[in-house]
Every structure is written in C-alpha cells, then in structure tokens.
C-alpha cells in the first residue's frame, strides 16, 4: 500500500525546525497564510495578507503624496468589519517637509476622513512606542509610519520587533521611507514606488488623470508559495482599486469606457426643492 505523498512545504518546515532554529512567530503565521488559488503575480500581492511589515520606499520627499497614496491603497484592502481603523504616525517636526494627510483627499482612496487617525509625535522612541501599542490593538487594521529622516533608533532589531508584533496581532505595519539607500530591515515586503505620468482624463487628455504608480518589489519573503518572477508593474488607482496598465499601449483617442454609475445624490439636496414649493 503506497504511503500518502507528504506535503513538501510541511516537510521543509520540519527540516528547518530541526536543523537551524525554531520557527519564529512571524514565520509560523505565514505558513498558514499560504492559501491556494490566489493570484501569484504582483497585482495579487497588492492584497497581501494582514500581519506583515511592509516598507514603501520613495526616492524623494516630494514624492510623499505618491508614497502615501500607494500605501493607503495597500492598507485599504485590510479593512474588515472588526478592524475599522487605520493609524498614521508622523514626527510633528516633519509635517511641513512632507505634508500632513488631508482628510478630504482620502475619499478618492475610498476612506472617510474619520478612518485615519493621525498621530503627530515628538520623538522617534515615542513613535516606535505608539507603533507597537497600535499594532497590539485588535481593532486596528493597519499602521502607517511616515518617516522623512533616517533615525538610528529604527535599526534591524527595532524592525524585527515590529515584524513580530505585527505577526502576533495580525495587524499590518507600513513604513514609508524616503531616499535611495536601503538599511537592513526585517520587513517581509519592500516596495519601491515612483509616480507615473497619468493617462489623462477621458475627455481632456491634458488634465491629470487617475493616480499612476510605477511599482517595483525589491524584497519578498513570503515563503515558497508566494514567489513571483515579475518585479515591475505599473498600476492605476481607480474606483475599483489597483488596475494594471501596459505603459506601451498608450491610448491615443479618449478612452472608451462605460459611463460611470451615477453617485447617489445626497437626500438633503434632493429634498430642498420639493419642500420649498
């Protein structure tokens, strides 16, 4: 009687446990998360499972809008019925350099101004404390940390700590960093995001259209099940989330798309006339 074929991944994990070191908390969480049937390309990775530490790199401070937009797009996928809050942490001294998140602008990313709670913090140790506290809260879907500087306190050990915390609580952490240097970190995913020249509005090609991101995945440590060959991708943020675009196929004519479904008119506006008569 032939013995049932053992699960290769399971065996590998066992060997790793025997040979090298005990499986760390965040590693163990990942094995169970390698679900079947998920798209294994880069677009699928934009809906990464919760409980991971991401790094989002932008080249310069003036691309802070791009970095935040991309991060909100990632974090938005993590909102569930039980986890309704996103927390954004920033050093208060850096607000003028990279700008403060602006509540009304969130609506384009499907978030109400209320969803994102902003922490304006004085020092880096306090910021790390706030990050760990927020990660531990089970009602928080994701924590976005925006750091324009490169503080010494945020070293490999600190990022390892954050990664373990994130895995333990099932809350994702997003570190937005700037510059071209890469420090050692325990992040599971490292994104490099650049703005892309947008496609223009359907009826006005000279006006800026939907936000476009040129993304590159520089680091991917999600286990064997989630490897991908594709490293570069250009995506647009639309009403339906991230949509992949082919940069070579530039539409010359205005895009033909079905008319956008009309938004429900607010009741207060509709009622006003009828009551006036």
């Amino acid at each position: 009687m032939p013995r049932p074929k053992p699960d290769l991944d399971g065996l590998r994990a066992q060997i790793a446990a025997l040979e090298r070191r005990p499986v760390l908390a965040d590693g163990a969480a990942l094995v169970s998360q390698g679900r079947q049937g998920e798209e294994n390309d880069l677009l699928g990775l934009l809906k990464a499972p919760p409980g991971l530490l991401h790094e989002v790199f932008a080249d310069e401070h003036r691309q802070s809008g791009t970095a935040l937009g991309f991060t909100l797009g990632l974090a938005r996928a993590l909102l569930t019925q039980n986890r309704q809050a996103l927390i954004y942490l920033q050093l208060s001294a850096e607000a003028q350099e990279i700008g403060l998140p602006y509540g009304i602008g969130f609506s384009r990313f499907g978030l109400t101004p209320d969803t994102l709670v902003i922490g304006r913090i004085g020092t880096v140790p306090e910021l790390l404390w706030a990050l760990e506290e927020s990660l531990a809260c089970r009602a928080v879907a994701g924590v976005v940390v925006d750091l324009a500087s490169h503080p010494k306190a945020l070293d490999f050990t600190a990022s390892r700590r954050i990664s373990m915390r994130a895995a333990a609580a099932g809350t994702s952490a997003f570190l937005i960093r700037y510059g071209t240097g890469r420090e050692a970190s325990a992040a599971r995913l490292r994104w490099h995001v650049k703005p892309g020249v947008s496609a223009g509005q359907p009826f006005d090609a000279s006006a800026p259209g939907n936000p476009r991101f040129a993304i590159e995945i520089e680091k991917l440590r999600l286990g064997q099940a989630r490897q991908t060959e594709q490293h570069h991708l250009i995506v647009d943020w639309t009403e339906n989330g991230f949509v992949s675009v082919d940069p070579l196929k530039r539409p010359l004519a205005p895009l033909r798309r079905p008319a956008a479904p009309s938004r429900p008119q607010p009741a207060a506006l509709g009622d006003r006339l009828s009551q006036a008569s």
């Binding site: 208060s92 509540g103 101004p113 209320d114 922490g119 004085g122 706030a130 927020s134 809260c137 009602a139």
Partner: peptide, 23 residues
C-alpha cells in the same frame, strides 16, 4: 479596545498629538 488605545496614546503623547480629521 480602540478607545483604550487612544487613551493610552493620548496620556503618553499629549492630548493634541492624537487627532482625527473633522470635516
């Protein structure tokens, strides 16, 4: 849990440090 998190953060970071956007 969320309210307690905000309390803890406010008590350590100061009342004006943890804010939300009010339209």
């Amino acid at each position: 849990d969320l309210a307690r998190l905000y309390d803890r953060m406010t008590s350590r970071l100061g009342p004006l440090a943890v804010v939300r956007s009010k339209p």
